[in-house]
C-alpha cells in the first residue's frame, strides 16, 4: 500500500512504466508455485535474482527482457535507486525476434477465475477517523490509505438477486471476507462463528440491515449498518451498490497501528464494469482457498 502512494506515484517512474516498459503486478505466492508456462517463465526470471523461487518469498521488482533475461532486481522504496535501475535497463540493446510464450494448460490451483455467470463487485474501505494527528508522511499514507478488494458472487446467487432475493450465502461471504479493515495491510478474515448478528434483508431493490462480528476473545469487533440498492433487467443484475459503516475495534499482525479503541470504518461495494484489469483479480479472502471462499458458509 505504501508503494502505491510513494514509489509508484513518482512522476519519473510512472512515465517510464507507461511508455518504456510493460508493467505487470502479481502475487508471487502464486507464480512461484504454479506448474505451467506462467510459473516456468516467472521462476526463470526470479532464479536469476537474489531470491530463488524454491526458497520462500521472491517479492521485489524485477526488470526482465521478453526472453526472460533478468535486467535488474530492486526491493527498496527509494525512487531514485529504482529510476536508475530502470534507465540502466533501457540503455541495453533489446533482444530481437523474441516469440510470445505459449500459455498451454494453466495450473488451475493458481489461476482462479470469477464464477461462471456470476458477478464481480469492487470493494473499497476507508478508516473515517480516530487516528492521532501526525506529521510523519509515511504514517499519513497508512492513515489515509484505501483498502481495495473484489467480491465474487456465484451464478446461482446472481440469479437469486435478479429475482429480488438475497441469498444467505452471499450475506455470509460479505460478512466474513469483506467487512474487514484492510486499509493498512492484509487482515484476518472472520470465522463463521464470529458472526454474532446477521439481520439483512432485500426488499423492492433496497438492501438494508446490520451485521455484528466479534472474536471470542473480544480483540476485534465490527458493528456495521448497511444500506444498498440492487437493480436487475432481463435476468441480470445491473446495479449492486452497498455501503457498510460502523464502529470497528482491533488490529492484527499485518494491520498494526489501528486507531485506539473504536473507530469508524466505511466499506463501499459497487458492481465492476469489467474494464479494469483489477476486476480480474481474485478476492483476498480466496487466496489459496477459492472453494472455501465461494461455498455456502
Amino acid at each position: 500500500m505504501i508503494d502505491r502512494a510513494s514509489t509508484f506515484s513518482d512522476p519519473g517512474i510512472v512515465a517510464l512504466l507507461r511508455e518504456k516498459f510493460v508493467p505487470v503486478a502479481i502475487d508471487q505466492a502464486y507464480q512461484r508455485r504454479q506448474q505451467d508456462a506462467e510459473g516456468d517463465f516467472y521462476r526463470k526470471i526470479a532464479n536469476q535474482g537474489p531470491r530463488p523461487a524454491d526458497g520462500g518469498t521472491t517479492q521485489g521488482r524485477y526488470l526482465a527482457e521478453a526472453d526472460g533475461t533478468l535486467l535488474g532486481f530492486n526491493n527498496h522504496r527509494d525512487s531514485e535507486r529504482l529510476l536508475r535501475l530502470m534507465r540502466e535497463a533501457l540503455a541495453r540493446p533489446r533482444p530481437q525476434g523474441v516469440a510470445a510464450v505459449e500459455a498451454g494448460t494453466k495450473d488451475a490451483r493458481y489461476s482462479p477465475v470469477p464464477p461462471a455467470d456470476g458477478l464481480v463487485v469492487r470493494v473499497h474501505s476507508l478508516v473515517l477517523g480516530g487516528y492521532p494527528e501526525t506529521e510523519d508522511p509515511v504514517v499519513k499514507i497508512f492513515q489515509e490509505g484505501m483498502g481495495r478488494d473484489n467480491l465474487w458472487i456465484r451464478g446461482d446467487e446472481h440469479e437469486a438477486l435478479a429475482r429480488g432475493e438475497l441469498p444467505d450465502s452471499l450475506v455470509v461471504r460479505i460478512a466474513r471476507f469483506h467487512l474487514v479493515d484492510n486499509t493498512r495491510g492484509e487482515p484476518p478474515m472472520w470465522a463463521a462463528a464470529e458472526i454474532r448478528e446477521r439481520s439483512v434483508a432485500l426488499s423492492e431493490g433496497r438492501l438494508s440491515g446490520r451485521l455484528h462480528l466479534a472474536t471470542a476473545d473480544g480483540t476485534r469487533e465490527f458493528r456495521a449498518e448497511l444500506l444498498g440498492f440492487v437493480e436487475s433487467e432481463g435476468g441480470r443484475v445491473k446495479r449492486f451498490d452497498l455501503v457498510a459503516k460502523g464502529a470497528f475495534r482491533g488490529e492484527s499482525p499485518l494491520t498494526r497501528h489501528a486507531p485506539p479503541g473504536e473507530f469508524p470504518l466505511g466499506i463501499s461495494f459497487r458492481l465492476a464494469e469489467g474494464g479494469d484489469p483489477a476486476d480480474t483479480l481474485p478476492p483476498q479472502g480466496s487466496r489459496g482457498w477459492v472453494d472455501g471462499y465461494l461455498r455456502d458458509r
Partner: peptide, 30 residues
C-alpha cells in the same frame, strides 16, 4: 498494470520493450 505475466511477455515481445514485474507477497489489489 497487467495481471498476467505471459500477457505482459507477449506484449513485450511484440513491442520490443522490457517487462517490469512488481512481485508482491500479498494481494495486488491491496
Amino acid at each position: 498494470w497487467k495481471t498476467s505475466l505471459l500477457e505482459a511477455q507477449s506484449i513485450a515481445a511484440r513491442e520490443g520493450k522490457p517487462i517490469f514485474i512488481w512481485a508482491m507477497d500479498g494481494h495486488p489489489l491491496g
